[in-house]
């Protein structure tokens, strides 16, 4: 089960899967497939407050904090973005705020998806990661206050 693996291990799993692909088509078909399979976000979460700014496509991100770990759910109207989100959730969901804040996410470079991190207005992956980490930071500080 994914739960017990570290972020690094989960990243390595994805990199391994991508190493089987020879062409860009295979890579993108895989990402598109992940996007299509990502569980759709319930409409009640598709509110303006959950929209990530800075994306050409609309991306909704929501999170839940349970037993010291954060669980993310997300959706997008663009399928490639959705596939990328799906990978990020697979890697980061179910970890502690500290683990998430410390994640370097090198796998994106290793699988050749760095172009999606480019700082152009048309691209949301960077804003998405920022928002994921913002949640982690918020949970970390509120958790510290409660404790």
């Amino acid at each position: 089960m994914n739960e017990n693996k570290t972020i690094k291990e989960r990243e390595e799993e994805i990199v391994e899967e991508f190493s089987l692909f020879d062409t860009w088509e295979e890579k993108y078909e895989y990402i598109i497939d992940l996007g299509k399979k990502l569980e759709p976000l319930d409409d009640k979460y598709k509110v303006p407050g959950n929209i990530i700014k800075g994306c050409q496509s609309t991306v909704w991100l929501t999170s839940e904090f349970k037993d010291g770990k954060i669980y993310y759910k997300a959706d997008s109207d663009a399928v490639i973005v959705k596939g990328l989100i799906s990978m990020l959730i697979k890697v980061l969901s179910g970890n502690t705020p500290d683990e998430i804040l410390g994640a370097k996410l090198d796998f994106l470079k290793d699988i050749g998806m760095m172009s999606h991190l480019a700082q152009t207005r048309s691209n949301g992956l960077l804003s998405m990661i920022k928002q994921i980490k913002n949640y982690a930071l918020a949970y970390k500080s509120t958790d510290a206050i409660v404790k």
Binding site: W24, Y28, I32, Q56, D77, V79, I80, R121, S122
Partner: peptide, 20 residues
């Protein structure tokens, strides 16, 4: 299909268009 998805796949085929 979202325009952005088309744009990404066109770029991979060496074609520069604008989406958005």
């Amino acid at each position: 299909i979202h325009p952005q998805d088309i744009g990404v796949l066109l770029d991979n085929q060496g074609i520069a268009v604008r989406t958005g």
